[in-house]
Simulated scan of single mutants.
Amino acid sequence: MSENEKDLGVAMALLERFTTQTLPRALEIKERVDRGEQLSQRDIDFLQLTLTERAEEIKPLVERHAEYQEVYAQAVHLYKEITERALLNEEKASPPT
């Protein structure tokens, strides 16, 4: 099996998991933070694992295949939007010091 065939298999599995599991959960979290809710520890753990650690794991694949860069960039941007909004929500909920 060639390196490209291995990459394609890995990419297909990752995209399947992303579209059926990761993206729907991330969008649900984004909806909640957009409404002003705070992140739960479960949300934080999900974001930490899925959108940071796994993003770093697949970065070499994305670097080898330009066709995956846009979806990768969009996922990273979604993570950034969620965390920025969640931080604002935390700041609003915390009493001033």
Score class of each variant (00 low, 15 high):
L88C: 05
D34M: 14
Q21S: 09
D43M: 05
A66T: 09
K6W: 13
E70H: 06
I58L: 10
V33W: 04
P24V: 05
E90V: 08
E53G: 05
T19H: 10
T97S: 13
A73R: 14
A66H: 10
R25E: 12
H65N: 15
A73T: 12
L14G: 08
R17C: 03
P60Q: 09
E3F: 15
Q69G: 14
G36Q: 13
E70V: 05
S94L: 14
E70Q: 13
V71A: 08
T83G: 02
A93N: 13
T97P: 15
A75R: 04
V33T: 07
I29F: 05
E37C: 03
F18P: 00
E67F: 10
Q48K: 12
P24I: 08
E91D: 03
I29V: 15
P60V: 05
K30D: 13
Q48S: 14
V71F: 08
E81Y: 01
G36W: 13
R42G: 06
Y79C: 06
S2I: 03
A73E: 14
R35T: 12
Y72M: 07
P96R: 14
K6T: 14
Q69K: 14
S40E: 08
Q74K: 14
T20G: 01
A26E: 07
I44N: 02
T52K: 07
Q38C: 12
A93D: 13
E53A: 11
Q21L: 09
E37V: 00
T52D: 09
E31N: 15
Q74I: 01
T20Y: 03
K6C: 08
R54L: 07
L47S: 01
L15F: 09
D45L: 01
G36K: 13
E31W: 05
V76C: 05
R64M: 04
Y68F: 15
Y72E: 07
T22E: 08
E3C: 10
R54M: 05
E84H: 12
A55T: 12
A86V: 03
R42Q: 14
M1Q: 10
Y68T: 02
E31L: 06
D43F: 06
L23P: 02
G9R: 07
G36L: 12
L8Q: 15
E91N: 06
